[in-house]
């Protein structure tokens, strides 16, 4: 199992992701340069958080046209695993690899905070093995309000494609826990093939005892336990 994290200009979570996978999860991981056309044999590609190209246009709107995205899209279309975290999720949505879109937060403010997530889908690699409880994970974004039209929403609900919903500390999915105003509290989704994962919260920021929270590591470990 080899992981790769794509570095776009303006990415700023690539080192965090590499550190978490290498030192907290003990996995092989390499950085992939956005101008390259080679996934270096990676089985699992991660699009990291950050502000690709400054996000001066819509978040992720330019990065999806980076040269390496051709290979990422081809990899996903062949059933290969791809995960986008925060800005990576925005890029996946812009590229059409996951359904829906990410809008400006409801209060039109950037939010950095510990929030709680409830795993939803029982049929994806990322969530099937998680416990039915609230996972404490940091968010840090300005454009994190998940939106999908009614048909799409029905489709992803019917097809068990919702990965996580925002909940309170005790696991209740309620409006108060929905900090960015996402539709139906949705924090992460997968594609119809369930091989592409997008989520706004940052599990890699909660994967190390040194940071006092390893709930994120439990989530990332799912991938390894199943695929190892």
């Amino acid at each position: 199992m080899k992981f790769g994290v794509v570095v776009f200009p303006g990415s700023n979570c690539e080192d965090d992701t590499v550190f978490a996978f290498r030192h907290n999860l003990g996995q092989e991981i390499v950085k992939l340069w956005h101008k390259d056309h080679d996934l270096q044999g990676c089985d699992f590609v991660i699009l990291p958080g950050g502000f690709s190209y400054g996000d001066y246009l819509r978040s992720g709107a330019i990065a999806r046209f980076s040269p390496i995205m051709n290979e990422v899209i081809a990899h996903a279309n062949k059933g290969g695993y791809v995960m986008g975290i925060c800005n990576g999720f925005q890029i996946l949505a812009e590229a059409g690899l996951v359904p829906g879109a990410l809008l400006r937060n409801i209060e039109r403010k950037y939010i950095c905070s510990n929030i709680y997530l409830k795993p939803q889908s029982s049929s994806t690699l990322l969530t099937a093995g998680l416990e039915d409880r609230a996972y404490k994970i940091p968010i840090a974004h300005g454009d994190g309000r998940y939106f999908a039209d009614e048909d799409t929403l029905k489709q992803i609900n019917d097809n068990d494609q919702v990965l996580f919903r925002y909940c309170d500390e005790s696991g209740v999915i309620c409006p108060e826990a929905n900090h960015n105003g996402s539709i139906e509290n949705i924090a992460g989704v997968t594609n119809a093939g369930k091989n592409v994962f997008g989520m706004m919260p940052h599990p890699e920021r909660a994967s190390d005892e040194a940071l006092g929270n390893i709930d994120g590591r439990f989530i990332l470990e799912q991938v390894i336990q199943v695929l190892a």
Binding site: F19, K109, Y110, I111, C112, P138, A140, R205, D208, N213
Partner: peptide
């Protein structure tokens, strides 16, 4: 403070440990 990213860099040891000064790990 919520408008500032305080967790990027996975270095802030104070996120889950409130204290009088901020603690940033070295790696």
């Amino acid at each position: 403070t919520e408008q500032y990213d305080s967790t990027v860099g996975t270095a802030n040891r104070s996120t889950n440990r409130p204290s009088d000064a901020a603690v940033v790990r070295l790696r």
